[in-house]
Amino acid sequence: MTLEFSGNLWFWRGPAPHHFVTVPEQESAELKALSRLVTYGWGMIPVRVTLGETVWPTSLFEKDGRYIVPVRASVRQAEGVGEGDTVSLQLELR
């Protein structure tokens, strides 16, 4: 399964600060329907993400009924994006 969507890059200032993009409601519902088949624990879903020319493996986390995609500093730097930017992502379930 492959999903494509756009979303804003936001910064979480928690104990382990990080940047994320929230998966839209419809795509989150599709992921939730498949989550039991692909999760490796705690509801996390392994994916391969593409942002621009950069591809990396990560896992989606559930937050407030939707999934969030962590975006590494190296990816943000390579693609020249930062907090508040709208980015287009492609997710491929692993």
Rank of each mutant, 00 (worst) to 15 (best):
M1H: 15
M1C: 13
M1Q: 14
F5M: 07
S6T: 14
S6I: 05
G7R: 00
N8S: 13
W10R: 07
W12G: 08
G14D: 10
A16E: 12
A16G: 11
A16T: 14
H19L: 10
F20P: 02
V23S: 00
E25D: 15
E25H: 11
Q26D: 14
S28T: 10
S28F: 05
S28P: 08
E30T: 08
L31C: 06
K32A: 14
L34G: 03
L34C: 03
S35V: 09
R36L: 08
L37P: 02
L37N: 10
V38K: 02
T39Q: 12
Y40P: 02
Y40T: 12
G41L: 09
G41I: 09
W42H: 14
W42N: 13
G43Y: 03
G43E: 05
V47Q: 03
V47G: 03
V49H: 03
V49E: 04
L51G: 01
G52Y: 06
G52H: 08
T54N: 07
T54H: 07
T54M: 08
T54L: 06
V55I: 12
P57F: 08
T58C: 08
S59F: 03
S59N: 05
L60D: 01
E62K: 04
D64N: 14
R66C: 11
R66I: 02
I68S: 00
R72M: 13
R72N: 14
R72H: 15
A73P: 05
S74R: 15
V75Q: 00
Q77H: 10
A78T: 08
E79D: 04
V81L: 06
V81Y: 00
G82N: 12
G82K: 15
E83T: 15
E83P: 07
E83G: 10
D85A: 15
D85F: 06
T86V: 13
V87C: 09
S88W: 02
Q90M: 11
L91Q: 01
R94V: 11
